[in-house]
Design a protein around this nucleic acid. Structure first.
Lengths: 204, 204
DNA sequence: GGACAGAACGTTCTAGAACATGTC
DNA sequence: GACATGTTCTAGAACGTTCTGTCC
């Protein structure tokens, strides 16, 4: 009974649902593949075309990120080749969606822990950010969305209860004060009425 | 007593505080002025330089918006001339902050109701979007900013206080119970010790 | 095979947030 | 130093497109 077979599915894949689908299962998101391929093409034979491309976009020195050297050319020539648009901002949006971080000021360099030169297999570990919240079953979304309001409501209820408790406490304290006064009166009565009979201690 | 003099200050100006400041009072935001000037330069004599510029950015046909024709040249040559950066996305962010809307797909055209060719005086009507919420006096900002955390914290404190109040209430109720028991004992003592002397009522 | 619903993914436009800078 | 404004990086939100399982 080898139930350990074929369970090499990462947590992240289960999380974002990729693992449960047939063709796309165990495949990186299209965006990641395209971006990776786009960069791998840099590693070509170094002919004129690749040389030109290398000035537009490339892996960084350490191979743990990439740099868009010419936004204009990247947008005009590279993007439409791999995607259905030529907007640099859309490309950036996708990078952020998949958790990439801009890793240098003054130039368009981005990094992701699992996006490394030569390690295409790591791409499956990269998940859409939107998937993290949606680990919550969707039917809980409404609750999550209104949590702020809920907290406020909770607050209000607590405040009400607090007010009532304070009021009750005050009433109890007044009762106790009356009891104390009563005790004194009773003791007075006792000491007076018992007169010469016997001593009375407060504990009776 | 003409108190109606010099009250030509628009509501929006009062709202965003521009009207209360001296030099900048009744002045459009720097960003708006710069963007407007940048476009007004298009209306020059039409010499070579302006001709070139016109291909980069210009008012639209109706004069109720403008178009950045070449993002690359706009970013490289125009932006650093007027602002402290050359990022097109930062320029876009500012446009959105001031309520401009992208008014055409497939090209970088933006419009704002009060941003019109030849009507520089309308610029004072354009306010930062952030100012709408900050109609709230600024001294409330801290509260507003931390409100979520505050509410949570408040909640926690209330919960603690509630717990203590319940505890105190219980203790008070126990005290009262003891007092009641004591009262009964005292009354017993009284009735016993007074014997034949006189009747004792609980109110003594 | 075709229709269709639901989910994942992509594209676009706008806003949030943190920090920097400048101004009074 | 409080406040408005500017700059940067990231996220929200709406909507469109593609994929996939299901039912007929």
């Amino acid at each position: 009974m080898s139930i350990t077979r074929d369970v090499s599915v990462s947590v992240s894949e289960v999380m974002n649902g990729r693992a449960s689908q047939s063709p796309r299962a165990r495949c990186p998101a299209p965006f990641l593949l395209k971006t990776f391929d786009l960069l791998e093409e840099e590693e070509g034979e170094g002919n004129e075309r690749d040389g030109r491309r290398r000035r537009i976009v490339s892996w960084n020195e350490d191979g743990n990120g990439f740099v868009v050297w010419s936004v204009q050319e990247f947008s005009e020539f590279i993007l439409p080749k791999y995607f259905k648009h030529n907007n640099f901002s859309s490309f950036i949006r996708q990078l952020n969606t998949y958790g990439f971080k801009k890793s240098a000021p003054n130039r368009w360099e981005f990094q992701h822990e699992k996006f490394q030169k030569g390690n295409k297999h790591l791409l499956v570990e990269i998940t859409r950010k939107k998937c993290e919240p949606s680990v919550f079953p969707s039917f809980l979304k409404a609750y999550t969305k209104d949590s702020a309001a809920d907290v406020e409501e909770n607050n209000h209820l607590l405040l009400e209860e607090n007010k009532n408790l304070r009021k009750e406490k005050l009433e109890l304290q007044m009762q106790i004060a009356q009891f104390k006064a009563l005790e004194i009166k009773l003791l007075d009565c006792l000491s007076q009425n018992m007169g010469s009979q016997s001593k009375v201690r407060r504990t009776c």
